[in-house]
Write a protein that binds this DNA or RNA. Sequence first.
DNA 1: TGAAGTATATTCACTGGTGAGTATACTTCA
DNA 2: TGAAGTATACTCACCAGTGAATATACTTCA
Lengths: 206, 206
Amino acid sequence: MSRQTSNARDRILTAANKMFYAEGIRAVSLDNIAEKAGITKKTVYYHFKSKDDLVEAYLASRDQPNLALYRKWFDEADGGLPDKVAAIFRQIATSARHPKWKGCGFLRTAAELANMPGHPAMKVGAAHKKKFELWLAQEFETQGLVGGAALSRQVVLLLDGAFSTILVHRDADYAEAAGEAARALVEREVRNSTQRGSGQMESAST
Amino acid sequence: MSRQTSNARDRILTAANKMFYAEGIRAVSLDNIAEKAGITKKTVYYHFKSKDDLVEAYLASRDQPNLALYRKWFDEADGGLPDKVAAIFRQIATSARHPKWKGCGFLRTAAELANMPGHPAMKVGAAHKKKFELWLAQEFETQGLVGGAALSRQVVLLLDGAFSTILVHRDADYAEAAGEAARALVEREVRNSTQRGSGQMESAST
DNA sequence: TGAAGTATATTCACTGGTGAGTATACTTCA
DNA sequence: TGAAGTATACTCACCAGTGAATATACTTCA
């Protein structure tokens, strides 16, 4: 790690980030990335031991920034829990209207590498999604919601559904619909948790 | 189209179906498919004008069978609307526990080809998803639900969310969670529609 | 009816190009 | 000087797509 070094590594990672996200994993070669980074392929192999390694680094580099963004959207939104959750979906709708938007990089990578369940990038992706689910569950439980974990999971399902569906239809309105569904589920749980002190049934039936 | 003809074409399509679904689009070459089908690559090019063309045919061949399956699950489930919707998710959970399950072929193809929005296969995929959404909306409206279209969309979001999330975590339980969320949303709309005759507001607020 | 012609279906062998990954040598700075 | 970092130039495998030839059936008309 000397003067120029981390510079080249950063440039590779930046190029990988843009290209893998924009085009997909298998659609982008290390030659492409090297060219974009303005270095040789051999230098890529100096800093990353294989393409798979670089793919893993690509997703790892998105982990914290992405989570921070969700947290920011949530924290800065006005209103109660339902509004804060809905705000995340509204922000995603906004992002999705940018022409360069191509869905969730984690989800798309998982879809593309579905035939390699042990791939290191898959683990990074799964961990990222788990972190989000856990963070939201904690937010819910801090606010006194009893079924925070289950609710968080439902919101996650709507969120990933929005990512996928918007990508299929190229229609960001799906994020709004998902936001409304999430809002309804959160409202319901807020009602549930405040009415009965520590009740644990979710549905009237069964 | 003589006797032998459609035979080769079918074998190609069968091989493409299995391989594209199992491995992904760009991970599978036409050499691979030709070998699996027991014919020459040139024969593949006789029946399909390009790889893209074959990918489109692959998704098109899954359209009706997939929709039929969802309809069957829905129709054969006991109980009311909420139960019928939940049944779809339970069936998906069951499918997802098979080792060969790799998510939704339409969604995965869309994720992989996200950089080619005009790709013919993308159109087939979008149309497929729209058909499902429309079918479910009609089922809802036939049962007298006012907000059938919006509700159908919410269920779709949960469904595609389940596909994506299960794939990431390799955990079919997400389908059950999605099913519970869907059930809650349907129950809410049933309540909404029966209480007020033809009201059209979905949420108490705004 | 049967030979000549035509459309369908398939193969073998190939091309131009790209993929991941490497052997080796040069450069630069501490 | 010697280790970190980078480049040139390469290997070998594969990939989408093609050229030329052939086999098989389906007409057509003398």
